[in-house]
């Protein structure tokens, strides 16, 4: 049970970090300069938490079992990038993200 919760937190902190990172670095300068520093710091903090949780989980689980869970994040990030960051969701991107997620699930389930 605790392992499943930690895997979920590991995944969600990673996704959150990605969503904060994009506006912090975007060449289009979508976020105000003062906000970009804060967003970058929060992104790094979120991904650092995810990193050390990952190291802890690797002590208990096989790499080829644990890491593919992160593949689920492609669906979450594609969805949140469309909803939160207003990125364009094209058919190839949606189809490709589904194929990648399915492939990653197959890899992790085997």
């Amino acid at each position: 049970m605790l392992t499943n919760v930690l895997i979920a937190v590991w995944l969600l902190t990673f996704v959150l970090g990605q969503l904060l990172l994009k506006p912090a670095l975007d060449a289009e300068r979508t976020a105000a300069r003062s906000h970009r520093g804060l967003l970058f710091a929060l992104a790094i903090a979120s991904m650092t938490i995810s990193f050390f949780l990952g190291v802890g989980l690797l002590q208990k689980l096989e790499l080829s079992y644990l890491f593919p869970f992160q593949g689920l994040s492609v669906l979450l990030i594609t969805a949140f990038a469309t909803m939160v960051l207003k990125e364009k969701l094209t058919l190839p991107l949606a189809l490709g993200a589904l194929l990648i997620a399915a492939g990653v699930m197959l890899v992790s389930a085997s």
């Binding site: 593919p68 189809l95 490709g96 990648i100 997620a101 492939g103």
Partner: peptide, 15 residues
């Protein structure tokens, strides 16, 4: 697992 790898590669190609 090989099939999964092939699916991921197909997804990468599609995008």
């Amino acid at each position: 697992r090989w099939l999964g790898i092939a699916l991921v590669l197909a997804g990468l190609f599609v995008i």
